[in-house]
Computed example of a mutant assay.
Amino acid sequence: MLKLIRRIFIGLVIATLAIIAIIYMYSSGRTYFNEEDEIGNTTGNIYNGGLFCEQDNLIYFNNPNANGKLYRMNSDMSGMKKLSDDMSVYINADENYIYYVRANNTRENKDDAFTKYNNTGVIRINQNGSKSMSFTSNPGAYLLLQGNFIYLQRYDVEQGLYVYRYKIDGSMERLLVKDAVKPAAVINNSLYYAGYSEDHYINALDLSSFTYRTVYDGSYLYPIFMDQYVYYIDIADDYHIYRMKQDGSEVTLLVNESCSTYNITNSGKYLYYQVDNGKKSRICRIDLATLVSETLLDGSYKQIHVTKDYVFFRDFNDTTTFMVYADGGPHVNTFNPPDLDVEKEKKKKQ
């Protein structure tokens, strides 16, 4: 009797382990899909390099003090963790994965073996940094996750920069636009973008019929669709910043100076922008309700990024990164995250 019970017990254990193994294998190879309205990062952040991305009270970022490696921190800047050794740009995230463009070829220090053999590509990893998957090994840019697809510029030696789309499981690769345009948004199943080679109109590609149409005539750069407005830099008007209603009415000049980049806080309260005017160059913000502007710092800056609580931007000449409360006072601080690999080595030597 005891032998029979023992055999039944062993059989149950083996069956349970087998079921667990099957579930693990199924889950580990399975892609978890999103709701159709999922957005991986803000358009403004992607235009500025996608160095910061916020999802579920976590900020994923390119660490300027760690050669651009992918890090994660809580929204209050606590709990720093390294997720990847890649130089990570155009970062997007959903509830399950992080997506980014691998740009190890742009690092100053390219001597390590990892960089030498893993230069470029478009990557998906789990939230904890595990299980890397590559969509393509080609160089990419302006990666934007919308729903269950990623849209990006992909470079090909023979073709140059074209816009492609992939499903988030790596399937359904499709060439969308034969031009080096920057994906701006997917609205009502149409991909919106500003023209580059043939025109500077805001155009839309219907993602069902794959037909193109012009939405707004003009000379647009970096259009951002937010609430009821479209914000943009007007190339024909010396790179001044405008906004208009999405029906094309109420065109309003916001910044009457030449600007190289801008971004808008998640609340829609402030528009941050860089003025390019020689010795009068400076980074500013304008209150979008009152249209009153103020200068934050004199000088040249780039790569303006927003999260719920902060705005980050970098010195034009190096990776020094600054931060300001997104909707708070204009006081600027330095964002100085640790290089956890260096700290780990220091602890070993102590």
Rank of each mutant, 00 (worst) to 15 (best):
L2F: 07
R6K: 14
F9G: 11
F9E: 00
L12C: 15
V13G: 03
I19R: 02
I19L: 15
I22R: 02
I23R: 02
S27P: 00
Y32T: 06
Y32G: 00
Y32P: 00
G40A: 03
I46M: 14
Y47C: 09
Y47E: 01
G50M: 10
F52H: 04
E54K: 13
N62Y: 08
N62T: 12
N63G: 10
N65Y: 10
A66F: 06
N67H: 07
K69V: 06
L70Y: 08
L70W: 05
S78I: 03
G79K: 11
K81N: 07
K82A: 14
S84C: 04
D85Q: 08
M87G: 00
V89A: 10
D94F: 08
D94G: 09
N96I: 03
I98S: 03
I98A: 05
Y99I: 08
N104F: 05
N109R: 07
A113Q: 05
K116R: 11
G121Q: 05
V122D: 00
I125N: 04
I125G: 04
N126K: 14
N128A: 09
K131F: 09
S134H: 08
S134Q: 13
F135Y: 15
N138Y: 15
G140A: 15
G140N: 06
A141N: 15
N148L: 12
N148E: 05
R154H: 03
D156T: 12
V157S: 14
V157P: 02
E158M: 13
Q159W: 03
Y162T: 07
Y164A: 01
R165G: 01
I168N: 00
I168V: 13
D169Q: 06
S171I: 04
M172G: 02
D179R: 06
A184M: 07
A184D: 13
V186H: 08
V186W: 09
N188T: 06
L191Y: 07
L191R: 11
A194F: 07
S197N: 14
E198K: 15
Y201L: 03
I202W: 01
L207I: 04
T211I: 05
R213H: 09
T214V: 14
Y216V: 05
G218I: 07
G218W: 05
G218Q: 06
S219W: 05
S219T: 13
Y222M: 15
M226H: 13
Q228W: 04
V230Q: 01
Y231Q: 09
Y232D: 01
I233N: 00
I235P: 00
I235C: 11
D238C: 05
Y239W: 12
Y239D: 10
Y242H: 10
K245N: 15
K245Q: 11
K245D: 14
G248W: 04
S249G: 10
S249R: 07
E250Y: 12
T252Y: 03
L253W: 08
S260F: 09
I264Q: 04
Y272F: 15
I283N: 01
I283T: 04
R285G: 11
I286Y: 02
L288N: 04
L288C: 09
A289M: 08
T290R: 05
L296Q: 06
H305V: 12
V306W: 00
T307E: 01
T307K: 03
F312P: 00
F313Y: 11
R314G: 00
D315M: 02
T320H: 07
A326G: 09
N336I: 09
V342K: 15
Q350S: 13
